[in-house]
């Protein structure tokens, strides 16, 4: 479950996968900006973007099932914000237009992360002169995300197998203790990571 959630990258050797990451990221950003800047009633424009995205998905040979699952996972958040606009005068059209816009942008970003490794995207950020401290932090975060999630899952399982009460208060204190322990462990891990980085000749 964690694996599927944590790796949106869909391995493959298609033309879209082999394209340089900078080009893909730039193209995705341009498409997103274009969709956002389209006037609210430009349904022809939306349709054109959707057709283009469908073409990209076909070229990337990512199964529709995989794409649909990721998009449906995120659509509730979009709906939640869009629903706010329903409560005002003439909100129905605003609602539909925004739903279309954000779904198109969502598809674009899902396709980008499906065809591009996150480490390649980080290299693009590095080349764009994003400060080193931020890129290093992002890279370390990405590297240790699954490690810490697994650690949290292990600790949660261990706690569940030892506490049999269904009390809510106990559940809160238990989860909080797991979170605290997770922080202690990540802080200790950070020290080991630093030692390893120094051993490999890392400099600030």
């Amino acid at each position: 479950m964690h694996d599927r959630l944590l790796s949106p990258y869909h391995p493959g050797g298609s033309r879209m996968h082999r394209m340089p990451a900078g080009l893909k990221a730039g193209g995705a950003a341009a498409l997103v900006v274009a969709v956002v800047l389209l006037p609210r009633d430009a349904w022809a424009g939306y349709a054109a973007c959707a057709a283009f995205l469908a073409l990209v998905a076909a070229l990337a040979r990512i199964p529709g099932r995989v794409l649909a699952r990721r998009i449906l996972l995120l659509e509730p958040f979009v709906l939640g914000v869009a629903a706010l606009s329903l409560a005002q005068q003439g909100g129905g059209r605003v609602f539909l237009a925004m739903l279309a816009k954000s779904t198109l942008c969502l598809c674009t970003m899902v396709l980008l992360s499906g065809t591009t490794r996150f480490s390649d995207l980080l290299r693009v950020l590095w080349r764009l002169r994003v400060p080193a401290l931020l890129v290093t932090s992002l890279a370390l975060m990405y590297r240790y995300l699954s490690v810490l999630m697994d650690e949290a899952a292990r600790m949660t399982r261990a706690r569940r197998s030892r506490t049999f009460s269904a009390g809510r208060g106990l559940a809160w204190r238990g989860s909080a203790t797991v979170a605290a322990q997770l922080f202690v462990r990540s802080s200790e891990r950070a020290e080991r990571v630093y030692a390893a980085m120094c051993a490999r000749g890392w400099r600030t």
């Binding site: 401290l133 290093t136 932090s137 992002l138 890279a139 370390l140 975060m141 990405y142 590297r143 240790y144 995300l145 490690v147 810490l148 999630m149 650690e151 949290a152 949660t156 809510r168 559940a171 809160w172 989860s175 797991v178 979170a179 997770l182 922080f183 990540s186 802080s187 891990r189 950070a190 020290e191 990571v193 630093y194 980085m197 600030t204």
Partner: peptide
């Protein structure tokens, strides 16, 4: 201090992982 720099990345991973813990 330089030795605490990796902690930023790990703390970010920690916040992300902690956001996944459920509080009923």
């Amino acid at each position: 201090p330089a030795r605490r720099i990796p902690l930023i990345g790990l703390a970010a991973a920690f916040v992300f992982a902690a956001q996944m813990l459920n509080f009923p």
